[in-house]
Amino acid sequence: MIFPKGEIVHQNLSTEYTGVPELLSTLNANGFAGIVEVELPGTKGFFFVNAGEVVSAVIEEGEDQAPLIGQDAVQNLLVLSGESAGILNVYRLAPHQVGFVISTLKSEMVFKGLSTDFVRLDRFIQKLAGEKHTGFIDLFTKKNKLLGTLFMRDGELEDLYVATESGDSSFFERQAIPTFVEDVIRQGGIFNVYKSTSNGSPKEEAAALPGEGLKAEKTQEAEADASQGDDDIPQQEESLAVEQAAERNGNFQKEALMIMQEVFVKLEKFVDDFSQEGIFLRAFKRALIEKSDEYPFLDPFADQFDYGEGRIFLDDEIELEEFAAGIAESLNLTISHLKKEFPKNMILPPKLKADLDSTFRRYQDVVKQSGIQSVPPVLFK
């Protein structure tokens, strides 16, 4: 089965060293949304995770066999992953995108092989909108190469998935859809239309996550402890609240760093591709030095922050608020330097611009959720 997987978080983890139940429990604690791919000898499976919970799964065992989907697949995949060695890949998606992916698992094709030579794609989409269509449209070149997938809910175009040349998968926001549709119409193509028989709602296929029994036991223990010492409840609750707040802030910081790391990697590749290797990093290091008076952790000699080889290092003592503000200004300054040096080349392609805009919104959402009220936005003009 082919469906959007999202952006890679972990790749090629061995099940010999990474237990699947333990991995799913960790994702649960972090409120993760995305897909866990399990590659086993002769079998491939996928766990679909939303808000940390495994909401569905699919198992593929060969071209001649229909895939197993749903709660049965969750349980079977857990058993299979514990019986033989395999490889794990983890992909991140937005929560609503997990719903879209699940909707592709239960769908029926209603139109096949429609050509833009004979059917106006834009008018056909209007027709589906009038019918309050819920489903998706797969679009291909005339040589049968997948261009992308448009997702609809109740007649509204809500998301766009595009398979890039490198084989990576990318979701784009609504703003990129009109340009994508125009490009398909201009170059011509073939499209198939599917109607979803499931709305992709996490509640619809909720499955128990390994570790739920342990949570229940802990809850019972907590209730027993509470009944034994009511006088200690305020202190216990206050202590627990402090620990939970610290844990949440730590998780927000990790997620923000991972998302910002994605931005650096994409920008670095874009700049270095039209210039030469190391140009982006040179401009970025220069910006860090210039901003280090306002944000001392950016000073290269402070050993508190660094970016190189596609990875961010940040000292644990640096607060997320300070990082968010300092890195936003540094990245703006980096782009300013590059625009002066390469005025014609620093015009971001629409696809990259849409991808970066989407990533920045995700980053800013995480920062806001951490409780930071005002963060200078990172701007691209």
Rank of each mutant, 00 (worst) to 15 (best):
K269M: 13
E262A: 12
K269Y: 12
I289D: 08
Q244C: 08
S292H: 03
E277R: 09
V271R: 01
V265Q: 06
M258L: 15
G250T: 11
F284Y: 00
A245P: 04
I259H: 01
E277A: 12
E247K: 15
I279L: 04
F284W: 00
Y295T: 04
N251S: 14
Y295W: 09
S292I: 02
A287H: 05
K285C: 07
E255H: 10
F280D: 03
A287C: 06
K285W: 04
M258N: 13
E268D: 09
V265E: 02
R282G: 00
Q253I: 08
E268V: 02
L257Q: 05
V265F: 00
V265K: 05
E277G: 10
R248W: 09
L281G: 01
D293L: 11
I259W: 01
D272H: 06
K285N: 10
Q276Y: 15
R282Y: 04
N251Y: 10
D293R: 12
R248L: 12
F270H: 08
F274W: 12
Y295H: 07
R286S: 06
E243F: 14
E255F: 02
G250V: 10
G250P: 06
E294L: 10
F297T: 00
D272N: 12
M258C: 11
A287Q: 00
R282N: 07
K285D: 07
E262D: 14
M260Y: 12
P296H: 02
N251F: 10
M260A: 12
